[in-house]
Simulated scan of single mutants.
Amino acid sequence: MNATIQFKDLGLKDYKETWDYQEVLFNQIIAIKSQNRKEAIQKPTPNYFLFVEHPHVYTLGKSGHIENLLISEEKLEAIGAKYYKINRGGDITYHGPGQIVGYPILDLENFFTDIHKYLRLLEEMVILTLAEYGLKAERSKGETGVWLDVGTPFVRKICALGVRASRWVTMHGFALNVNTDLGYFDNMIPCGIKGKAVTSLNVELGVAQVSMEEVKGKLLKHFVALFNAEIKTKIEETTLIL
């Protein structure tokens, strides 16, 4: 078992380019696991965790409905946004500048083999991070992600989750709205759930900007603690670097 996680902040990066990079890392882990089944000596599988911001993009998960994207291809082009149907779970979501997107590409057999627990720990990482800013964030029964004022008419979502897992290897992840332009959410039904508002950390705190680097540091701190992991801040040179 290998509890070391190689971490990299990709900065602002195109969604499709980053998706392809995730696939490289994901397939690398799958290949090692397949080879291990044939060998007496087992090679440790690596784990990765990426932070990234994307230019404006809408993505639709495997169980999603295109009707939840409320604008045409022409309007997408007019607002400078792209659209992709992708291989994660969940419905539609938006990524854009001012949003911290996290992609853990883990071999869960290095940690635990429980997808439900994995999702709950990602949510807990965000809940603990927001608590450091004085916000009481929580889960909403039957819905993934992190929410505020659950059970009230003012419920609103601040973090979306959508993952893919195969042979206990994960990809995709979470998107936390920090300084996000919330107007882009008006072009979709967030996660396919009608009547639920979306918010961001800077809106909740009533400030123009929140330090993205500060939030990333808090997320990473809680991630390491929850997964009982060790972070390595340089991805091995044998791995494709964006």
Rank of each mutant, 00 (worst) to 15 (best):
E230H: 06
I29Y: 02
H172E: 03
K234R: 05
V150A: 12
T129H: 07
A3L: 11
C191Q: 06
L219Q: 11
E39G: 04
H56Q: 07
W19Q: 02
F49K: 01
I79L: 02
I92V: 00
Y94E: 01
K82H: 03
T180C: 13
A40I: 09
A175I: 15
V198C: 06
L106A: 04
A175E: 10
E17I: 10
G90Y: 02
S211A: 11
Q99P: 08
N68C: 01
I5F: 10
I127R: 06
T152S: 05
I189Q: 08
F49S: 03
V146M: 12
V52H: 10
S140E: 05
F49V: 07
K194G: 09
T180L: 14
I100R: 05
Q209N: 09
G151P: 14
L242V: 08
N228R: 10
S34I: 13
G90R: 07
Y103A: 01
Q99M: 07
V146T: 12
A81N: 09
L76T: 00
F185Y: 14
R164L: 04
D107E: 00
E132R: 15
R164D: 03
N47V: 12
E73G: 08
F154A: 12
C159A: 12
K13N: 02
A31I: 03
L50P: 01
V207A: 05
L70R: 04
V198T: 12
N36I: 00
L106Q: 05
S200K: 14
A40C: 08
T238W: 04
K234G: 00
K62V: 10
L201R: 15
N47C: 07
C191P: 14
L12E: 04
K43C: 03
I86Y: 03
A197F: 15
Q42H: 02
R120S: 13
N68M: 07
Q28P: 05
W19P: 02
T199Y: 12
E39H: 14
E74A: 02
T144I: 13
E67Y: 05
G134W: 15
E77V: 09
S166D: 03
H56I: 00
Y118Q: 04
